[in-house]
Computed example of a mutant assay.
Amino acid sequence: MSLSRIESALKRIGLDRYMMLLVLTVLLASFAPASGDFAAVLRQITWWAVSLLFFIYGAKLSTATIVTGLANWKLQLGVLLCTFALFPLLTLAMKPMILMGLPVAIGVGFLYIGCMPSTVQSSIAFTSVSNGNVAGAVCAASISNLIGVILSPLLFMALIPGTSGYGIEPSAIWKIVQQILLPFAVGQLCRPLLANFLNKYKTPTMVVDRGSILLIVYSAFSAGVVNGIWQVVQPAQLLMLIGFCAALLAVVMGIAITAGRLAGMSKADLLALFYCGSTKSLATGLPMAGILFAGQDISLIVLPLMIFHLLQLVVCAILSQRVRA
């Protein structure tokens, strides 16, 4: 069997090159973690890579697309309610069960999932593959991330118990604005100069998008390995966490579809709600965690988000292929 056929077969079950690179990055960090001066340089490179990513997002985003998408208030409201109301409530309800068998930092990380905005690239891609409302998905994912820059840390601060030991400094929100929102705004200003190039050549955006995530994953898990993450998390606990993440994803997907149908949404809108409302952004979540939890167990805190991200990619890839067929 040729390599292209093997890749096509793997894609049908949700395993593409990006998924495999994520797994390989975790393995690389486990056996060859960054440390010392190299780790410090890597953190600086990662910071600029994330800023560049959101600059590109800003340069690509069409104001006309946002205006068109906003007219579909049912879809936009549905995505925001799933992302910033349903998810936080479910993770808050499940957190006591998680703490019965998993470290506190992982319980904090599970709650952190609920506060994150929707994905941008993958939710739009899956909506497109399924012949859903792409313009609505672009608008919903973009608004979710813009609001999430401020709302996500505030929501997390409101939900996390003061006795957990994982407090957030208010100054962290300004640091997040500097790294994410300001580059996005500058990108919007530069859009007339860059939009045609970025729309014609998709590779630069994809490389920066995937590359920045891989850099953050390697940096975070390198720090975790140095601090003994795999001595803290046992295989049985990892399987337990995977089960909780899968249950969370299944419940949100089920509620999103049911609510969309009850609201009388068209199939195209329903698909956009499904993919945007049930997914969480790793591109926003990882750099935000690096700022919010500086000096804490970042690798343990982002582990639930990593697992949830991998699960959502696999499930959405499989479902999008079946819906299109």
Rank of each mutant, 00 (worst) to 15 (best):
L102Q: 14
V108Y: 02
N227A: 15
S266Q: 13
I143M: 06
A220S: 14
K280F: 01
N131Q: 15
S266G: 15
V41I: 09
S320L: 09
G277H: 03
L249V: 08
I168L: 05
E169Q: 12
W47M: 09
K11H: 04
L28S: 03
L248Q: 07
P88N: 04
L3S: 09
K202S: 10
Q312H: 02
A9C: 12
L181W: 08
I147R: 01
S8D: 13
V26L: 01
N199F: 08
F221C: 02
L181G: 02
T119L: 06
C245D: 11
G114Y: 04
S51E: 06
D16W: 09
I180G: 02
A325W: 08
S122V: 11
T68L: 15
I6P: 02
I176W: 03
A32Y: 13
T83V: 10
Y166R: 05
S266Y: 07
V138T: 12
A39N: 08
T91N: 08
C82V: 07
D269Y: 11
A246S: 06
L292V: 11
A172H: 11
I66Q: 07
L194C: 10
A256V: 14
V41Y: 03
A325N: 09
Y166C: 12
V149F: 13
P88F: 08
S299A: 11
S212F: 10
L75I: 09
L86M: 15
C276V: 09
A259Y: 05
F244H: 02
L273R: 04
I106R: 05
Y57N: 14
L303P: 03
L89I: 15
T83G: 00
G36K: 01
C276M: 07
M157Q: 11
G260H: 00
L194A: 12
G224R: 06
A289V: 08
M1D: 07
A185Q: 03
A59P: 07
V41Q: 03
V26R: 00
L198T: 06
